[in-house]
Simulated assay, not measured.
Amino acid sequence: MPKSKVRKKTDYTINPASRTPVKVKAGPSSSIYVGVMLGLMIFGLAWLIVYYLAATESTYGAEGEPLHWMYNLSAWNFLIGFSFMVAGLLMTMRWR
């Protein structure tokens, strides 16, 4: 039976160019950016809390009451509240 050839394995080398750190040229975020980011998240949470606590038909949902418009929005309040919170959370990705 013939003997098989032994192949020499090539060593795996790491490309040194891919191991160099990358400098970030942008500085830290301004305090206005952080304030808007946190404000959006808190405003969205406050919107949902007000909807749950105050915009019921028995108290403020009746016509002529201060929050009857919020009661008329019904399930759209969830979209509005969560949209503000998601916008604030998306801003955290750019926060430095």
Results as ranks from 00 to 15, higher is better:
Ser29Lys: 03
Ala62Phe: 12
Ala54Glu: 05
Phe84Tyr: 14
Lys9Ala: 07
Gly35Ala: 15
Arg7Gly: 01
Val34Gly: 00
Ser58Met: 07
Ala62Pro: 00
Lys3Val: 15
Lys5Cys: 05
Ala62Asp: 03
Ala55Val: 05
Met37Gly: 07
Met41Lys: 10
Leu73Phe: 14
Asn77Phe: 00
Ser4Met: 11
Asn77Pro: 01
Gly81Pro: 06
Arg94Lys: 14
Val50Tyr: 05
Arg94Ile: 07
Tyr12Gly: 06
Tyr51Pro: 04
Thr20Phe: 04
Gly88Cys: 03
Thr10Tyr: 08
Tyr71Pro: 03
Pro21Phe: 02
Arg96Ala: 10
Gly88Pro: 07
Thr20Lys: 15
Met41Thr: 05
Ser74Val: 00
Ser74Met: 10
Gly81Ile: 01
Leu79Met: 00
Leu53Phe: 13
Pro2Asp: 11
Gly81Leu: 06
Gly64Pro: 10
Ile32Pro: 02
Leu45Thr: 09
Pro66Ala: 13
Tyr51Trp: 14
Gly81Arg: 08
Ala75Pro: 00
Leu53Glu: 12
Val22Ser: 02
Ser4Phe: 12
Ser30Gln: 07
Leu53Thr: 14
Ser18Val: 09
Ser4Tyr: 01
Trp69Asp: 07
Ile49Ser: 08
Ala75Ile: 15
Met70Val: 12
Thr56Lys: 08
Pro2Ser: 13
Ala55Glu: 06
Trp69Ala: 14
Met93Cys: 13
Ser83Glu: 10
Met1Lys: 13
Arg96Ile: 01
Ala46Trp: 12
Gly81Glu: 08
Ile42Lys: 03
Thr92Trp: 05
Pro66Asp: 08
Tyr71Gly: 06
Ala17Leu: 14
Ile14Cys: 07
Lys9Leu: 10
Asn72Phe: 13
Gly88Arg: 02
Met37Ser: 14
Val34Phe: 07
Tyr71Ser: 10
Leu79Trp: 13
Leu40Asp: 01
Pro28Arg: 02
Pro2Thr: 11
Met91Gln: 10
Lys5Leu: 11
Tyr51Arg: 09
Thr13Glu: 12
Thr92Ser: 15
Tyr60Cys: 10
Ser29Thr: 11
Met70Gln: 12
Glu57Pro: 15
Thr92Val: 09
Asn15Cys: 14
Met37Lys: 12
Ala87Thr: 12
Pro2Leu: 09
Ala17Pro: 00
Gly61Tyr: 08
Trp69Val: 09
Met91Leu: 15
Asn15Phe: 03
Tyr33Leu: 06
Glu57Val: 06
Leu90Trp: 13
Pro16His: 05
Ala17Tyr: 09
Pro66Gly: 09
Glu65Asn: 13
Leu67Pro: 08
Lys5Ser: 09
Gly81Phe: 01
Arg19Lys: 14
Pro21Cys: 05
Trp76Lys: 04
Tyr52Leu: 05
His68Met: 04
Gly39Lys: 03
Ser74Ala: 14
Leu38Cys: 06
Val6Ala: 06
Thr20Cys: 00
Asn15His: 12
Leu48Arg: 09
Val22Leu: 02
Asn15Pro: 14
Met93His: 10
Met91His: 05
Pro28Tyr: 02
Pro2Trp: 02
Leu40Val: 04
Phe84Met: 09
Leu45Pro: 04
Leu73Pro: 03
Pro66Cys: 12
Gly27Arg: 06
Val36Asn: 01
Glu65His: 10
Val50Arg: 00
Val22Arg: 07
Gly27Cys: 00
Arg7Phe: 07
Tyr60Lys: 02
Tyr52Asn: 11
Leu48Gln: 13
Thr59Gln: 03
Leu38Ala: 09
Arg7Lys: 04
